[in-house]
Amino acid sequence: MGGRRHVPGPEHVIDVFVYVVVLNLTAQYAPEVITETFTTSLLVALLLKLVLEVVLAAKRKAKRRFTAAQTPLGKAGGLLTLAVLLPGSKILVLELVAFVFGDAVSLGGFFTVTALIIALLLARLGVRRLLELPEDRV
């Protein structure tokens, strides 16, 4: 029978709008970042929102496991997970965007997408604080 349906809160909608602004500003000033149309940039922002939410949840889980680990092997496992997750998430973003949007979108290379993701997360944090919306703990 019907379970509860998850309805995104206003902070998630605002995040997508913030991502669109940051993405379009980046495309304007970084020649290696290309989004052919505004509609495409909106869809890329939505994809980035979904991917970054999953990555942030995985990062929080890995940090909890690292903190809770009682043995050196457990600590090493948590640290290894974080070490793979951090660069792996950027590669995931690049590959997903290339798969979904093909030549219509380019986020540059690894370092450009890393800078873009940092800018997205900082802008999101700034707007959430400005509007007093709930922050996800990174």
Rank of each mutant, 00 (worst) to 15 (best):
M1H: 04
G2T: 05
R4E: 08
R4L: 08
R5A: 09
P8T: 04
G9R: 08
P10T: 05
H12G: 04
H12Q: 11
I14Y: 02
I14C: 06
I14P: 02
D15T: 15
V16P: 06
V16F: 01
F17C: 06
F17A: 10
F17W: 03
V18G: 04
V20W: 01
V20G: 01
V20P: 00
T26H: 03
A27H: 00
T35L: 01
T35M: 00
T35I: 03
T37L: 04
S41A: 07
L43M: 12
V44S: 02
A45G: 14
L50H: 08
L52Q: 14
E53I: 06
E53L: 13
E53V: 10
A58W: 03
K59I: 00
K59D: 00
K61W: 14
K63Y: 10
R64Y: 11
R64G: 05
R65Q: 15
R65F: 12
A69E: 12
Q70N: 15
T71L: 09
K75G: 10
A76T: 11
G77R: 15
L80S: 13
L82G: 07
P87T: 10
G88C: 14
S89A: 08
S89T: 10
S89I: 00
K90W: 04
L96A: 14
V97D: 00
F99Y: 12
V100Q: 12
F101C: 03
F101V: 02
G102H: 12
D103I: 07
A104E: 12
V105N: 01
V105H: 07
S106I: 03
S106G: 12
G108Y: 01
G108A: 13
F111W: 15
T114M: 08
L116A: 08
L116M: 05
A119P: 00
A123R: 08
R124K: 11
G126V: 05
G126P: 08
V127Y: 04
V127N: 02
R128C: 10
R128N: 12
L131W: 07
L131D: 03
E132I: 04
E132K: 14
D136H: 06
